[in-house]
Design a protein around this nucleic acid. Structure first.
Lengths: 200, 200, 200, 200
DNA sequence: TATGAATGAGCGTTCATTCAT
DNA sequence: CATGAATGAACGCTCATTCAT
């Protein structure tokens, strides 16, 4: 007797709930500071139930890190590196990335922890790294396009791409103390400078 | 019976030794992954001795984080915001910062962890934050100087300063995977773009 | 609505299947090492079904231990203590017992565990003990018969019976390492010596 | 500053105490039924102290099993297989073994559990097995000696040795229910029968 | 009857901290 | 001051059992 549709639905919701509260806790308290007990209490389920949905703490952490990647991947990569108007494309891209990164508060805090301890979380780190490489590569192509069309000054395109993604990460880090929002408007224009736009 | 000079010397060396091995361990294994036993073994002293020099684990961590600040503070802040040649000053400053950050491998790994977990380490975070504010403020003044002398384009100076320090941090983070060294030469010129240098 | 004949059959088969796989697992992994989940997987039935057939884990274990007793009881006790030819009867009996014990590999492993932990499994142990007493008593009568007919030397009959059954158990124990088969032919003759046969 | 002699003494006593209460508990409750908490309570020390003396539960169990071997090895093997009077040597040997086995109540209960679950305790089992082989081999040599001197009937000496050690183990097992003492006097003479003594 | 998600007590183990020596 | 044994709270995890479907 397989599970009814309703039960299946319920489980899906429960799993998502666990992931949500775990994301919050991992971001706030770190991997070690987050205990299964705290997760179960925050999700208002029993201790043992966490293990029904995730084999162990590591699997829960891995899911928290990896599953969102697919969700925001499309958003982050939704720019056209072959655009006829690279400068405009760039501007739109920066806007979008600032918005996305501003919304990923908790998630990025976890990312920072993984990078700071990447030896401890090799699988999760590998996934993030793979995404990052893809991201950087696509930015590079847009930079090349802009340079070819002579609307961007000549710089090593991969260097520019690396610095752009680094800046996004760095802004996130430097914004933790919430005394100032990292992602205010003036940031976008200064970020554009990195690409060396040529005034027409 | 007061301690002899020799004893005093010896204790000082022991304390420094503990801090050094602890820095390495905290950077590599994280706060929770670093145990007092591991520290004592790496320093080849007895377990109990660690507590002779540091009240508890937290105090050791705090010392590891805070004490080096004074040491590199002077280096990092050794640029002249009132320079007559802001562009040249900027270039020299970037060079120096890149060099310093490249040499602080372990320490910056710990900084990343603290920022990612700032709620957990409020005092250490506050110290780092205070330094960061001072750093940013001084960069801002150099930017203002450059803009006044019309060798830098007009942008909000604080924004530029924030993005510069963010970029330094972000580069550090994105360099962990050792496939590429974050601090290669081409980075310096692209970094300069952020400030919007005006071609003469 | 009563169960159909077919359903009843099906349930009987399922119950036997559970007992079989549980015997194998209890023998190999011990009581604690055997989990209901493993039993259900080995029997290719659902986890919950095990509880349909056995109230709890203890009941399953009890059934595994006690139910086979009836099955081999007749075999083990099928010798005639009043035989006119006690020496021949003895030889046949030893042969049969060696054969039976050699075939009860898994079961005897469980018996050994129960005896080693008899405080933990009092009911199961009591059943085994009762059988053992009956067994020993019947052997004793055959020994008395042989002594009366002066084909066995004079020894305390109960002592001989006890040592005989002890030897059967002990052989089983010493045979676990499968480097030598405990139940090879030469054993039977040496076993016979225990009874003190008088050469005619 | 190394530990003082007194402290060393104290630790030795504590370690022995833990081994003693653990032996009792393992024999009575089995490996799984024995918890570190129970051990610490029985030894009247703190929970954590058990781990000061034994790395983990498995190491404690291993020590309980292996360390006594050396202690009784000499006793068990203290017979002369080349004796000029094999029959007398045999009688003395049996007496001694009966006495030793009768005194190893708890220990032999543990041995039985290990044999019954030898896959689970491979190292401990290997040690016991090695001792058993040595034991059996030496008994075999005494049997050969007796056969050569024609005071024992001709039987395969290794078979006789195997059955003798099996009988010792089996008696131990069959004596658990304390309704009768396995090691009463009459046992020794019947045991002697196994070797096939030739009346002079 | 069959199923498997839900539960939480209880386990082994770690480790910061204390303190007698 | 140096040492390391002693302590026990807190962790991750397992699994027999229950029960809604």
């Amino acid at each position: 007797m397989p599970l009814s549709e309703k039960q299946r639905e319920n489980m899906k919701r429960k799993r998502t709930l666990i992931l949500d509260v775990a994301t919050e806790l991992f971001a706030t308290l770190g991997y070690e500071g987050t205990t299964i007990k705290k997760v179960s209490e925050a999700a208002e389920i029993s201790f043992g139930s966490v293990f029904t949905y995730f084999k162990d703490k590591e699997a829960l952490f891995y899911a928290v890190v990896v599953e969102p990647i697919e969700a925001f991947k499309n958003d982050v990569l939704s720019f056209n590196p072959e655009s006829e108007e690279p400068l405009i494309e760039l501007k739109i891209m920066i806007d979008r990335h600032m918005t996305i990164y501003a919304s990923l508060q908790n998630y990025l805090m976890i990312v920072v922890q993984i990078i700071g301890q990447h030896n401890k979380y090799p699988e999760a780190f590998a996934k993030l790294d793979a995404f990052h490489d893809q991201f950087r590569e696509k930015v590079k192509r847009l930079v090349e396009n802009g340079q070819n069309k002579q609307v961007l000054i000549d710089q090593d395109p991969m260097t520019v791409a690396t610095m752009y993604t680094s800046l996004l990460s760095g802004l996130r880090i430097n914004s933790v103390d919430s005394r100032y929002s990292a992602f205010q408007g003036s940031f976008n224009e200064t970020t554009m400078q990195l690409f060396g736009p040529i005034k027409q």
